[in-house]
């Protein structure tokens, strides 16, 4: 029995404090994923908080067929999707952020080694923000968070084949964005 399952069993048997083990173990990973998925640290914190709260509340429904993190991730992604629907947020602000990032990168014209890591991160983050929600999510879950296709399929409730095709398109699209908006990317490749 893995440590997550042990903690879950303890919670369900009345030791509610054992849930802290799960929070401690998974919070930073989830926060990182959500921060990039929604583009806001504050929002990521709110979503993660809510995801953990819901996971706690619904823990008796956790069947143990998937990893706890996968299950938690699914809750979080559903929350994110709901939040997006509710707010009707488009990428306007992110486009602005991307433009800013692109301009920033442009200052270093074709000298990748001079790019600060954070600037590269900002650039990639901004490019990711231009992807649609579906592609961005699957891309981050795979390439940032390291979930395998099966887990991603469970989280997003889509077939594995869809994960693969969506991921492929997301990577290609991201490459195009980086190429066209920065211009430097092609040379780098």
């Amino acid at each position: 029995m893995n440590e997550d399952q042990q903690a879950i069993d303890q919670v369900l048997s009345g030791n509610l404090a054992a849930f802290e083990v799960l929070v401690t173990r998974h919070q930073r990973r989830l926060l990182g994923l959500l921060a990039h998925a929604c583009g806001s640290r504050d929002e990521a914190e709110d979503l993660a908080q809510e995801a953990f709260a819901r996971a706690f509340n619904k823990l008796h429904l956790y069947a143990g067929q998937a990893q706890f993190y996968t299950w938690l991730c699914r809750i979080a992604m559903n929350l994110l999707a709901s939040d997006r629907r509710r707010k009707r947020l488009e990428n306007q602000s992110k486009r602005e952020g991307f433009e800013a990032a692109s301009n920033s990168v442009g200052l270093y014209a074709n000298v990748e080694k001079e790019l600060e890591r954070t600037e590269m991160q900002q650039c990639v983050q901004a490019a990711i923000a231009l992807l649609d929600e579906e592609k961005r999510t699957v891309l981050l879950m795979r390439d940032f968070d390291g979930l395998d296709y099966e887990a991603i399929a469970q989280v997003l409730e889509i077939p594995v084949g869809t994960v693969r095709s969506r991921l492929h398109r997301a990577r290609l699209e991201l490459k195009d964005i980086l190429e066209h908006r920065i211009g430097r990317f092609e040379a780098q490749l």
């Binding site: 048997s13 404090a17 802290e20 926060l31 990182g32 990039h36 008796h60 429904l61 991160q121």
Partner: peptide
């Protein structure tokens, strides 16, 4: 490149276990 994205560097969540939200035992 996606792998170089910054990991979470903020503070941990301040998650308080609320018995009122306890799962079915």
């Amino acid at each position: 490149m996606i792998g170089t994205l910054q990991r979470w560097s903020g503070s941990d969540l301040k998650f308080t276990i609320d018995p009122a939200m306890a799962p079915r035992l």
